[in-house]
Design a protein around this nucleic acid. Structure first.
Lengths: 201, 201
DNA sequence: ACCTGAACACCGTTCAAGT
DNA sequence: ACCTGAACACCGTTCAAGT
């Protein structure tokens, strides 16, 4: 009411952002990424038709949420870079841990990001916000090779190996397939050790 | 009509199997695993309520289909074992290739198997039909270690590393994230090479 | 024993109409 | 410009009723 003169922008100013935020919140609560567009609208306090003024369809909202997830993942990985002062080996280990921690902390969001249900998955993943995540790996491996820490191999291939290992571990764990009884204790650590033996010079 | 005396077992004998087969066929056609229970019934030539006489709900059918997929995957991997006569190295390479080929040939089915939409994913993946797939890897790595081909490490940890790498590569490729422009040519081969450098003695 | 048809509560999406 | 309410075509699921 202190704004220009009583105008309240109809609803609350930025419904688009509110919808994305609501969807993100719902992903955290239920472990399921299968939220419903109508419930998002309900929780945002608008009619079920309102979201269509901001997104062409549900898949588009899923895509926007996925990109927000990539933003968070990229920032989480970049933070380990900023905090690393014990050398490249420690920085590498911290990045691996940060990736796995993100998947464990955001299971539904992670599934959504890679689940193929988003609109034009190919386009989403070509987006700079998603590609940037991969580039952090490429950069780190490149610096590691220059320092003699990693074997000299095509760096994007090494990055693909790291990414696939991290992604595979994350997904298998979300599916409950890395339980100790089947795969042994500390399967994740063992798998990362094997990856390391292939990377370190 | 040559059967006992004109009785045709009402529909066609084994609706349960027909439903699973129809669902599998639909997975192959559309690249999408989001088939609808009503359409499965339609294509099987029964009412939309009929499947409920054989499955408690849709998730149960998804689970049955997923297990059928694990049967196929396990058989595909076991076939490489039977055909291998050029030593363990070749057998290992053949198994890696067979796994990746399965994912590429059955994208929707593969997504369903690991997508978390099935009923009680944890139970499904504890099923012998699914665990057997992993055991093939464990067995091969065990024989390889005994022969001095692979480094001596806890074999289930090595198997987890292989599985995660294969699973990650399969999923990332299904998502279109391993395109050459971003990750370099032959990213899959490069990633497998890095895995090999961590495994081979 | 196995299947059908109508019914219920829900979706995603569209569109004329409201402010 | 932004949102609502009713409407349409679809789902998953249930249940009395048919053969």
């Amino acid at each position: 009411m202190t704004a220009t003169h009583g105008e309240r922008a109809y609803h609350h100013g930025d419904l688009r952002r509110a919808i994305v935020a609501t969807a993100m919140a719902m992903l955290q609560e239920g472990g399921d990424w299968q939220f419903t567009l109508r419930e998002v609208a309900r929780r945002a306090g608008v009619s079920h038709a309102a979201p269509y003024k901001h997104f062409p369809d549900k898949a588009a909202l899923l895509g926007e949420v996925a990109l927000t997830g990539f933003d968070q993942l990229r920032l989480a990985l970049a933070a380990t870079h900023a905090a690393a002062s014990d050398g490249l080996g420690a920085e590498f280990a911290a990045m691996m841990r940060a990736y796995l921690a993100f998947g464990e902390a955001n299971p539904a969001l992670y599934r959504l990001m890679f689940g193929g249900a988003v609109a034009n998955a190919a386009d989403i993943h070509r987006d700079a916000r998603a590609v940037g995540t991969f580039d952090l790996l490429v950069d780190l491996l490149g610096r590691g090779q220059a320092a003699g820490l990693f074997r000299e191999r095509p760096v994007r291939g090494q990055a693909a190996a790291c990414w696939a290992q991290l992604h595979g571990l994350t997904m298998l764990r979300l599916d409950g397939l890395l339980v100790a009884e089947k795969v042994g204790e500390n399967a994740v650590d063992a798998a990362l050790a094997t990856l390391g033996e292939g990377l370190f010079a």
